[in-house]
């Protein structure tokens, strides 16, 4: 898992489109109650893939946690 990073979802920006959950079902899960995306506890993604998921969130709600472990 070289270059694995943590991600976070801005709960005010997320409008529950679910693109993230479709791309990375192991990492993102839309909450059954409020429909908003949450990062699964402890889940990480390879940095390049994380960057793609960030880019493809239509509501720009996902970001990489920059102090996440690099390695």
């Amino acid at each position: 898992m070289s270059g694995a990073v943590h991600l976070t979802v801005d709960l005010d920006r997320c409008i529950g489109i679910g693109q993230c959950e479709m791309l990375e079902p192991e990492v993102f899960r839309l909450d059954d109650e409020d429909g908003i995306s949450r990062v699964v506890d402890g889940a990480t993604l390879d940095r390049a893939r994380a960057a793609e998921v960030v880019e493809r969130c239509p509501s720009m709600a996902i970001s990489i946690v920059e102090d996440s472990p690099s390695g």
């Binding site: 409008i15 489109i17 908003i36």
Partner: peptide
């Protein structure tokens, strides 16, 4: 506009997610 838009949209967003 947000935030009013966001509150309304969340009423039905779950019916249209890829999973749903």
């Amino acid at each position: 506009d947000p935030p009013v838009h966001t509150r309304l949209r969340r009423l039905i967003s779950s019916a249209f997610t890829p999973r749903h």
